[in-house]
Design a protein around this nucleic acid. Structure first.
Length: 573
RNA sequence: GCGGGCAUGGUCUAGUGGUUAUGACAGCAGGUUCCCAACCUGCUAACCCGGGUUCAACUCCCGGUGUCCGCACCA
């Protein structure tokens, strides 16, 4: 049995391997650290967690699902900041072992430390930079962090550099123009994407917690920062654990409702508050223990390069408190950066004023018959520059700066000064983005961790995986008490009926004693078991067994099937 | 990435320079039982990979990989 090792986490891991839930990848070739497989049972659980997640967000109505490539050309990740952030050179102190980013050490000694290459960094380190920790100066050679998997698109020589995406978020930003059109050019709206992300971790540990290839599920919610959506939070009356920014005005731990958290100023942004509580809803809905969920606000010093405000949702389990969801206000950082790097003008939204702003503008209207002959071919450029002119000079002539930086002299005869009344109906702006990013594998780990229950049964160790039906690998097990006298036949008919119901899956097990089969289905978390016995042959009734307390009731096959279909099976008890 | 421990059927493990390589549980077939891992019979199934030492290596040595513990890292 699996109760021989003395740590619960080892026994749980053993169950996961033995029952085909989560296993190390490529094991027959020795395995690769940081890569896992979901086996036949685990893949069902993963699929259902993903489906729950997609349904959770798309049910809002203003959030849609998209799907984009995992291979991402380099310029996208330059604009997002990943290439700069990820290409840092690391060095270690040979005396005390502390590790530093090389460009941080070089600050103050070089105008642009980020531009240094490996050799320059190494030379500079030998030149007497001291370790901030121990003040010695014996450095290891600098080496690149290389946290993204790089590849090439196209032939080796002519190909373009690309990386496996480190997050799915960039796909949503790339699709912003299409989303903006889809939503009739009105904020707020959101897009979700689930899929694989890749980080070439230096030293993955802790099984499913730090992976090199992992399942992500991210939502980008685009809002007008001047009118952030503020849903009514009063309908959530659960108390939520919060750990506020240790450097902020509210430093400390709290247990309060989300509306209290917002009104007290601990949560700073109404839309972020809403995502915190909706994240809480999701996690509880897939079976995470509410008592082991907490939200921790990032201190300004640990915020990601793009984030203006950030909360981690941490879940407690065998590996301590683990960040399972990051909720960040990314502001306009990504869209603005992509606009600058790509030159696209489609990454904005239109803010319609309630009333048009009437502006009286002094303008200089060009006098073509004078300017044409004066500037000849350049006349068009000059007139464009005149149109862009914001500060109208008081006196003539004046020097007008053109788009290319040169300037020309504008004389009184070339223009007519007049006042113009302009109705401005709105303005273009770059939307802000609130991003909840879910680590699905970490969440699945905690679902399994929280569900795994070790009990005793008649003096023997017994384990039950208490999964919510919404994430259980099968909804119901169908067990003929014996596979003879027609019981097996009836069981197979029930099995087929269950499997024909949308969204429902049954598992048939006719092997070995009934007690052993109950144990098997308890171990992988199947919430219900239907047993076909001798009485079934007489009156068409079966027993229904509830996993979590092993209670049993008797009901007709028709009744059980219809209650399974309607989701009301628990009303039998 | 550094230091240390570990690596034997599906799982947990015993053990040895020459063995038919333990045992338990799980699994399979049959019997038995007739609602909670019962019992009987039989069966399937393992020494992480690559070098070296040796007449002979699962065992000793070196390297790799994986895993665990500490340190570091984790945008």
């Amino acid at each position: 049995m699996s109760f021989m090792t003395d740590r619960r986490v080892d026994r749980l891991t053993s169950v996961l391997r033995r029952r085909g839930i989560v296993l190390p990848s490529f094991e027959i070739y020795g395995g690769i650290s940081g890569l896992i497989d979901y086996g036949p049972v685990g893949a069902c659980i993963r699929r259902r967690v993903m489906d729950n997640w997609v349904d959770h967000w798309t049910s809002h109505g203003d959030i849609v699902e998209i799907d984009s490539p995992t291979i991402t050309p380099e310029p996208v990740l330059v604009a997002s900041g990943h290439v700069g952030e990820f290409s840092d050179l690391m060095v270690e102190c040979g005396v005390c072992g502390s590790a530093f980013k090389a460009n941080h050490l070089a600050e103050g000694r070089h105008e642009n430390p980020d531009s240094l290459n490996v050799d320059e960094i190494n030379a500079m380190l030998k030149d007497g930079i001291e370790c901030p920790t121990c003040s010695e100066s014996k450095w290891s050679d600098a080496r690149s962090m290389d946290l993204m998997f790089s590849t090439r698109i196209g032939s080796k020589k002519g190909g373009r550099v690309a990386y496996m995406r480190p997050e799915t978020a960039q796909g949503m930003f790339m699709l912003y123009p299409a989303l903006f059109r889809h939503f009739k050019q009105k904020l707020p709206f959101g897009a979700i994407q689930t899929g694989k992300g890749y980080r070439n971790e230096i030293s993955p540990r802790q099984g499913m917690i730090r992976l090199r290839e992992f399942n992500m599920a991210e939502l980008e919610y685009f809002i007008d920062p001047d009118e952030p959506p503020s849903p009514d939070l009063s309908v959530w009356d659960e108390k939520i654990s919060l750990i506020a920014d240790p450097e902020g005005a509210h430093a400390g731990e709290y247990s309060m409702t989300i509306s209290e958290a917002l009104s007290s100023g601990i949560v700073r942004h109404p839309t972020v508050a809403w995502f915190l509580v909706r994240t809480w809803d999701f996690l509880v809905g897939v079976g995470i223990d509410p008592a082991r969920i907490r939200f921790r606000q990032h201190a300004s010093t640990e915020m990601a390069h793009y984030a203006d405000d950030c909360w981690d949702c941490e879940v407690g389990g065998e590996h301590g408190w683990v960040e399972c969801v990051g909720i960040a206000n990314r502001t306009c950082h990504d869209l603005l950066s992509h606009e600058q790097h790509s030159g696209s003008n489609q990454l904005r939204a239109w803010r319609q004023y309630a009333k048009p702003h009437i502006e009286i503008r002094d303008i200089l209207s060009p006098n073509g018959s004078v300017m044409g002959p004066a500037f000849k071919g350049a006349a068009g450029v000059v007139m464009d520059a005149l149109k862009e002119l914001v500060e109208i000079p008081d006196s003539m002539p004046f020097a007008l700066t053109l788009a290319d930086g040169s300037s020309v002299e504008i004389t009184d005869e070339m223009v007519t000064r007049r006042s113009e009344e302009v109705a401005v109906h709105g303005e273009w702006f770059t939307p802000h983005v609130i991003e909840p990013a879910f680590g699905i594998d970490r969440i699945i780990w905690h679902i399994l961790d929280h569900g795994y229950t070790e009990t005793e049964k008649e003096g023997e160790n017994y384990s039950i995986m208490r999964l919510n039906q919404s994430v259980a690998p099968f909804d119901v097990a169908i067990l003929p008490l014996f596979d003879k006298d027609g019981m097996g036949h009836i069981a197979r008919q029930i099995w087929a009926s269950v499997n024909s119901m949308p969204g429902l899956r049954g598992e048939l097990d006719a092997n070995k004693s009934i007690g052993r089969r109950y144990a098997r289905v308890d171990e992988i978390g199947i919430p219900w078991a239907i047993t076909v016995d001798h009485t079934t042959l007489e009156d068409g009734s079966v027993t229904v067994r509830r996993r979590d307390d092993q209670e049993q009731v008797r009901a007709s096959i028709e009744d059980v099937l219809s209650k399974l279909a309607s989701g009301g099976i628990s009303t039998l008890f």
